[in-house]
């Protein structure tokens, strides 16, 4: 059976925190908080977010660095001409291209990382309300149809301004 999502909208932070507590009391630990500005982590008692974004620029930087080194070292080896009495493989001039290569690799992989880790772009907005960008707080729960009623009741108990469901939102 397909899961259903509901979104409880709260006009202020204090009632939203109460709503989050009620959801946890009702057994819903894994809820989503939608806000118009960043809140300190754990402000609503939500689960910590884990991500691996830092890995992406690191991989990109290593790839870029490797390509830069191979490009510069390869061309020097292919045309082994001594310039200015310096060794064939001299690091100072290699550093210029390697630096840029490292950075370009890091940039490229950062873009990929941000898009991948944020699961963006989304062609269609999910359960959402434009009042979130006006200061409202949204608490979203996704669960089976049997359990979703308890989540809805928890949000009602916390005096949510409005509760939207994915079925109604899609209608």
């Amino acid at each position: 059976m397909a899961d259903t999502s509901i979104l409880g909208l709260f006009s202020n932070v204090d009632t939203a925190v109460v709503g989050a507590d009620k959801l946890k009391e009702a057994g819903f630990e894994d809820f989503e908080v939608l806000t118009g500005s960043p809140y300190p982590e754990g402000a609503f008692g939500e689960k910590p977010v884990k991500h691996k974004l830092f890995v992406f620029p690191l991989i990109g930087a290593v790839c870029g660095f490797t390509v830069g080194m191979l490009l510069t070292a390869g061309t020097q080896m292919a045309y082994p001409m001594v310039t200015g009495g310096k060794p064939i493989l001299s690091l100072p001039p290699m550093a210029i291209i390697t630096y840029e290569g490292t950075m370009l690799g890091a940039v490229l992989f950062t873009i990929i990382g941000v898009i991948f880790e944020s699961r963006l772009p989304r062609p269609r907005l999910g359960l959402y309300d434009r009042r979130i960008t006006e200061g409202f707080i949204g608490l979203m729960v996704t669960s089976s149809e049997q359990r979703i009623g308890r989540a809805e009741q928890a949000l009602k108990d916390a005096k949510a301004t409005e509760i939207k469901s994915s079925a109604r939102a899609g209608a």
Partner: peptide
């Protein structure tokens, strides 16, 4: 805006991405 909704994870990604860029 890429379908931005303001979830906790999106804000976390956003902060990290901003620092990296």
């Amino acid at each position: 805006s890429l379908g931005w909704e303001g979830t906790t994870k999106q804000w976390r990604m956003h902060r990290t991405a901003l620092l990296l860029v």
